[in-house]
Every structure is written in C-alpha cells, then in structure tokens.
Design a protein around this nucleic acid. Structure first.
Lengths: 183, 183
DNA sequence: ACCTGAACACCGTTCAAGT
DNA sequence: ACCTGAACACCGTTCAAGT
C-alpha cells in the first residue's frame, strides 16, 4: 500500500477512498491481468479444438506476463474478465459437442489444468539452478527417487510444449473420437 | 514468526537458529502437510487406474486438511514428501503402460490438475455466500454470461465428485483403451 | 550448541481533519 | 467528492550478547 501510493505519487491514505483494503487491490489486479488484448474472436468456427486451445493458452500466457499474478490464484477471483473467459470457454465446449451433463466437469477440469500449469510454471520461473540442484539431490538418492530421476522430470524445461501436449490429452478424454492428438 | 514463537513459547529470535527465514518455514510447512498417513501401499497391483486415483485423491485431501497450505502452492516445493509422491505417481503410470516419451507430460498434467483443483477448492472453502452472490450477479447480466449461468457452474458444490470425474477424463486421454470411465 | 532482547526498518489501517 | 498526516498496532530480521 505504502509502496503503491509512492508509485502513484499520492498519499498512502488516499488509496483507501478508492479501495477497501489491500485484499481488494489484489483482487482487482488479478482480474485486470485477464483483460483481453488482441482479437478476442478469431472464430475458426470449424476447429473447436484449436479454439479451446487458443483460449486456454492465452489465459495462461496472460498470467505469465505478470508472474506475481500466479501467487494470487489462491483467492476466489470472479471478476468480469475471469467470468468472461469462463463464458467463452463454455461456449466453445458446447460447440465441441460436450454434453450438458458433462459441461461443468469439463470447465472445472480445464480450469484446474490451466491454473495448476500457470502456478507451477511461474514458481519455477527464475529458479533453474534450484531445479538443477534438486535433480542433483535426486541423483544422490537414486534409490528412493529412481523413477523421476530417470525421466529427468525436473530438468524438462519445455514448459509450453508440455502444457500443450497435456492439454491435448485432457481434450482427448473430454471429447473422444473427435480430431484427437494421438498419432 | 512472532506469533509462531508465541505459540511455541519461545523467544522470537530462537526460531532463527533452526530456520533461515519465514520463507523457510513456509516450505517446511507445505512439505510436511504431504507426509503420508495410513497405508502408503495398498498395492492393488492389477488396478492401475484405481491406484493412480488413490494417490491423487490423497494428495488433494492431505492439502485440504490444512487449507492454508493451498495458498503456499506458488512456491516450488520440492521437499522429500513431494518428491516421494511424484515418485509413487511415476511408478504407477509406468505400470499403467504410459510410454517413457509421454511420462513427463503425464506427470505434469496430473500435477497441474491436482494443484489447480486443490487451490480452487480451498479458495471456495468458506465463501458459499460469495458464490451465491456471484451467481446472482450473473443472473442480472445473463446476456453476457448466459452459458455459465445456465449450467449453474458457480453453484455446483460437488467438489469431490467433480474432481474425480474430471480426473477420469484426463486418465482416459493419457491411457486410452484401458478400462475407461466412459459408460 | 542453543537461546535471547533491544533496535531497525518496515507494514496496513483507523480516525479525525482538511479542501 | 476526494485527499491527507499523525498515530496505532503490528511485522521480519540484524546484531551483539548471553548460557
């Protein structure tokens, strides 16, 4: 608050006329990160899969542009931008043929996936050396952690590719039989 | 720190002999929540699907037992308990026939899903009235948010069921053709 | 090896007051 | 309607010192 006021060149307490508390500022900041930039609707009407992937990749990318926003994910953020993106996702899933009975599960699954991926990617943002150190620790304990050491899980840094491939698997499960990601 | 010291009946600065900083305490707290209680291996050797579901449901349940732990998820927590659970998951996926080339994607996908589900569920923990209020706001803006209003997304409170069903879809995508969740 | 209090440099927020 | 400074009740951490 004090630093924010400094940054704005105002007195600290002026903020409290516009905002109720620090929590309020966090909520507003988190939702504002999710504002749309660029074309909201490329509307490739026949490629539902590409459309959903685009919505979710943009969601993740918007948050990663401001990595601090990921640390705010533990608050129920239901601002207009968040709701707008949920609405967009819901419509795309309908078009993809997801049954009404599965709709909420589908939305929450994708939400969970995106939020988890975002928070994880942001937390590893500047700590490559930590991951290397962790992997080294693993090597010394290879008996206990043989499997994740063998797959070099913690050294894999193709975040975007992993996000997209995992999302592909989830979409395969949610709408099987349609243009799948399987070879 | 000051409150923690009070709780322990020690001087505030005594803590700093055992621990480097407040961040250190958070890391230790987060990992300790993930300690195993109960039987780690029921080892139903032929039901790989049930095994994976059990591991991930227990992961989520362990964190939800201490909802504050979800708000610590934005730190790269790679303590021994976290690594142990990753190792367990990796082995189960191997047994399930997930190819080595897909292993890391599979692990991170499930990780993302569980972390997202946990943080979301924890954030809605004590705010049922917030969700109801949000849904009401939606109703007044039904033009803008018609789809998510219609599906009553924000009022759905079968968290455990939604978690399990979504996980089923993801597992279907990760290991298709095996005993699926589809009817 | 383990604990401690005083001191420093910070916080967010209430309140009563200004324009 | 909008902004403000003084004051209150807190923080985490350094440091030099104790046992």
């Amino acid at each position: 608050m004090r630093r924010l006021a400094d940054r704005l060149g105002s007195g600290v307490m002026s903020l409290y006329w516009h905002v109720d508390s620090k929590e309020d500022v966090f909520d507003l900041a988190l939702d504002s990160v999710l504002e749309y930039r660029g074309s909201p609707h490329i509307a490739q009407l026949h490629d539902w899969r590409g459309e959903i992937i685009h919505v979710l990749e943009d969601w993740r990318a918007s948050m990663l542009r401001h990595p601090w926003s990921a640390s705010l994910l533990s608050r129920r953020a239901l601002g207009p931008n968040t709701l707008g993106r949920l609405e967009l996702l819901s419509k795309a899933l309908s078009r993809a043929g997801v049954a009404a009975a599965d709709m909420n599960v589908a939305i929450w699954s994708l939400w969970n996936y995106v939020m988890g991926a975002t928070i994880t990617r942001a937390s590893f943002e500047l700590s490559d050396e930590d991951r290397a150190a962790a992997q080294l620790r693993l090597a010394r304990l290879s008996e206990r952690y043989a499997a994740i050491e063998r797959s070099r899980l913690l050294l894999d840094d193709d975040w975007d590719g992993t996000f997209r491939r995992g999302l592909g698997f989830l979409l395969d499960g949610l709408a099987p039989g349609q243009n799948s990601s399987a070879p």
